[in-house]
Design a protein around this nucleic acid. Structure first.
Length: 270
DNA sequence: ATGACAGGCGGGGCCTGA
């Protein structure tokens, strides 16, 4: 039955999404509603803000998803949901002392193809020099691991909250972000070093539009004034980029009651 | 401008986020 659906719906063999939910327990109803509406095959979640045993497994499994969780108490935490079978690895290589849960990777098998998907919660980097140093070090670890993944010559999708505003057009008011860790020159250079390995960023591969944002601060009426930034990204290896059909920001989710400050971003691969 | 919101923790404000 699954095979016949894929053949019949050939333009949409796999739909992959990323969403920083800002607490999966606070956002469970929104998540379930959005899963029903968007029908993603693979979902990368960030900021689940719970330990593995507190993740709302039963409700999400009932919606048809396998679940892999890499959580921690109070902060951070990432997860991957998949309608297809997957094998997962938690943690970003390169620093055994790093206890923050910000990376989980899955090899998803769909039909006779495989797609490797990572859920990434890149450090914010504001709040002092130590935090910014941690952000830059984490980005270098990600770059090194991404280079290893590219060498596999697989379809790879690095999806998540990168906490990087790539360009001025990715902020409604870029002048307000010039001293922010999300937009500092070193941050943007480190992000480009990752892209320049050979990744295609899905939104910019499909639109040149300004005013495409994925985050609006809770404060100061940012959503009402559309004072947003674009910091949630999907980076595609060449093999995945070959299969890219479309990229979409589910902007309307920000207007739901008690929303996350981020909205889902999703792609369709053939 | 270092504030407004929001969530977790834990039972009162404090830390963190972007």
């Amino acid at each position: 039955m699954l095979c016949s659906r894929i053949i019949k719906d050939g333009n949409r063999a796999v739909r992959i999404a990323t969403w920083n939910v800002n607490s999966v327990r606070q956002r469970l109803e929104h998540l379930l509603n959005w899963l029903k509406e968007a029908e993603p095959d693979v979902v990368c979640l960030q900021e689940i803000k719970c330990q593995d045993d507190a993740f709302p497994r039963a409700e999400i499994e009932a919606a048809g998803y396998n679940i892999a969780v890499h959580g921690q108490k109070t902060f951070n935490g990432v997860a991957i949901l998949s309608r297809h079978p997957m094998e997962t690895t938690a943690g970003l290589p390169g620093d055994s002392e790093d206890i923050q849960s910000r990376y989980i990777e899955a090899l998803v098998s769909h039909g006779d193809e495989v797609t490797r998907v990572a859920s990434i919660y890149l450090p914010n980097g504001n709040g002092g020099p130590e935090k910014y140093a941690y952000k830059l070090a984490w980005m270098e670890r990600l770059r090194q691991h991404a280079a290893t993944l590219l060498a596999l010559e697989e379809s790879v999708v690095l999806a998540g909250d990168f906490n990087v505003i790539p360009e001025a057009r990715d902020a409604r008011h870029p002048e307000n972000w010039t001293r922010d860790a999300l937009f500092l020159p070193q941050t943007r250079t480190a992000y480009r070093a990752l892209i320049n390995l050979g990744f295609t960023e899905a939104i910019r591969a499909t639109t040149d539009a300004a005013d495409v944002y994925t985050f609006w601060d809770y404060t100061a009426g940012a959503w009402r004034r559309n004072d947003g930034i674009r910091i949630d990204h999907l980076l595609l290896s060449p093999q995945a980029a070959d299969r890219l059909k479309s990229a979409t920001v589910d902007r309307h989710v920000r207007s739901w009651e008690k929303p996350s400050d981020h909205v889902p971003v999703r792609i369709d691969l053939s």
